[in-house]
């Protein structure tokens, strides 16, 4: 069975945020409501300062705490390993937002990050809570999977661009933007990433690029201690010597 997963090579990432904006436009997100984001950190004292960053999508955990706490079963895990929200079932209680260790879930009706509120500039029409003129084609929208312009009062999150990946040819190991056959099925963040720091494919397929990279370059998952077992892995150099406890590539 396919288990979609992502590998992000931190040696290549330039922190440019193209993943963030490509995601936002593909998925019609509100400004500042970043299903996909890059987090910046700095520490040290001038002139010895370290600036670093971490690109962060939803981890689409193997064992997602958001699914466990959802009282209406609105948050669910697909057979191919993706965590989605069914907007028809979501009651907006936000338990999942508290349970998620990675802070990657968003409630629709928060105060706008950017004023004036873009929702006021492009007001909604009944079921859609807002209606940007550039929204995705109607045929792609699927509220049962949290895809498209959401209604009021629900939680939303990264879908791994499920409207794209779910139409991929069956059995492929990699969803690679360089391959014309899979380009349109590659998540927006992966497809756009200029330094090619992102890879997407089937974690259960030993022939997939993601499986190979995780092994060859020592893929790491965030917050292993939670037991969530993310399906997003990070690479940071690939050398064998590491600080103990900072590396795990155990699969579930």
């Amino acid at each position: 069975m396919t288990k979609w997963g992502m590998v992000i090579d931190l040696e290549k990432c330039t922190g440019c945020q193209a993943c963030t904006t490509a995601c936002a436009m593909e998925n019609n997100r509100l400004p500042g409501e970043n299903w996909q984001d890059v987090l910046f950190y700095h520490e040290g004292t001038y002139p010895n300062v370290n600036l670093s960053w971490l690109p962060r999508p939803c981890m689409h955990c193997e064992n997602p705490s958001c699914v466990a706490v959802c009282p209406t079963k609105a948050t669910w895990k697909t057979e191919d390993g993706v965590v989605l929200v069914d907007w028809n079932k979501c009651i907006g209680c936000k338990y999942c937002m508290i349970a998620c260790p990675y802070g990657v879930r968003f409630y629709m009706d928060e105060k706008a990050t950017i004023e004036p509120d873009t929702r006021a500039a492009f007001p909604g029409d009944g079921t859609r809570s807002w209606n940007p003129p550039y929204r995705m084609p109607d045929a792609m929208e699927d509220p049962s999977k949290g895809i498209g312009i959401q209604p009021h009062g629900v939680v939303s999150k990264c879908t791994f661009c499920y409207h794209k990946i779910s139409k991929a040819p069956k059995g492929v190991a990699d969803l690679d933007e360089a391959n014309p056959a899979t380009r349109e099925h590659t998540p927006a963040c992966v497809r756009t990433c200029a330094p090619k720091a992102r890879y997407f494919g089937d974690l259960d397929n030993p022939e997939s690029r993601v499986s190979q990279l995780i092994a060859d370059k020592g893929g790491v998952r965030l917050k292993e201690e939670t037991g969530n077992k993310p399906q997003v892995y990070y690479l940071s150099g690939g050398g064998a010597p590491v600080v103990p406890g900072q590396r795990s590539n155990k699969k579930a």
Binding site: T21, A22, M25, P132, Y134, R135, P137, R183, A188, T192
Partner: peptide, 30 residues
Amino acid sequence: RVHAIYGSPNHPIANGKLCPKGPLGIYVLY
């Protein structure tokens, strides 16, 4: 309705890729 912008795979500068500004071009139109 213009709803997405991606880098052209056949273009020698873009090679299918974009910087963070590229996808936002739709905002410029609308």
